[in-house]
Design a protein around this nucleic acid. Structure first.
Lengths: 151, 151
DNA sequence: ATGGTTGCAAAATGTTTGCAATGGC
DNA sequence: GCCATTGCAAACATTTTGCAACCAT
């Protein structure tokens, strides 16, 4: 495993200590829940899972903890979709998304040329990039084939 | 002018007729306001401008009209930033965005190499692209300089 | 006159915040 | 014991919606 749960937990604890924050059961539960989630998630997912497990963690605490985890880089905001924020575990290698507008499938990809080209563009505009998000919308192979079969 | 205001207005009227919708003074005022805006805008900008001109158009109507204009392709949602939607006139040539996380400034750019590279990537994944959105977050020159001045 | 449209206010949604009680360290 | 943290509810911000009056066609 690239980054073990143990290591992440330690990073989290160290970060909290460094920032003079406290390691609480709630924060631990939230982190655990996020680590269990392999893909994308939103606040409500975490609240719901914890409630199901009879762990009492308030929605406010989830929001507050996510803010910390975001600062730490353990989670990233992926996108605001339908007025709500979607997060992902930020430990995986950076990647972009191909999103099928028909079936909703999300294909992840990474292309270093693309990354370099973006850096060059930023330089041209004297812009100092911190992160980026590329979403390409269209039809995945299956949906494209199906569509052409029918018509 | 690539697409005159007159033509857009006509497109709008035709679309409304086709969809069995009505051309109302409010819809005309909203469209005019949007056409006057050269760059990005949000709902509040439109509401505020119209109020200043003593044109009585409710916020609800602005939202409802924007939904129509979005379907028609006259406006596009650019991003959801800080939980609010930012729009732009959708008639301009395709471009991507550099977004300053400090001052919120949005810089537009277009790079044909980038477009071609994306097409290639899609081909590699047998994905048939229809549109895309690239947002690069970071610091604009001014904010970057200011930040480094202080510390 | 018919049926879409409007403004309003209320509701819905997602997120943030003030505060008293709690609990890490 | 200090001070960050928590849960709660209230506050906020944006967007959506129900409804009665209205108006474009």
């Amino acid at each position: 495993m690239r980054s073990s749960k143990k290591k992440i937990l330690n990073d989290f604890k160290e970060y909290l200590k460094r920032e003079n924050l406290k390691f609480t059961p709630q924060r631990e539960e939230i982190l655990n829940e996020i680590l269990k989630t392999k893909g994308h998630f939103e606040v409500e997912d975490i609240v719901y899972s914890l409630k199901n497990k009879k762990k009492n963690v308030s929605r406010a605490t989830v929001y507050r903890t996510l803010a910390i985890l975001k600062d730490l880089g353990i989670v990233n905001e992926v996108i605001k979709y339908k007025n709500k924020t979607i997060y992902e575990l930020g430990l995986t290698k950076h990647h972009d998304h191909l999103i099928c507008v028909n079936c909703g499938k999300i294909i992840e990809f990474f292309n270093s040329k693309l990354e370099k080209l973006q850096d060059k563009i930023c330089k041209d505009y004297s812009f100092h990039p911190m992160s980026h998000r590329l979403e390409i919308y269209g039809l995945c192979k299956d949906c494209y084939d199906n569509q052409n079969k029918i018509s």
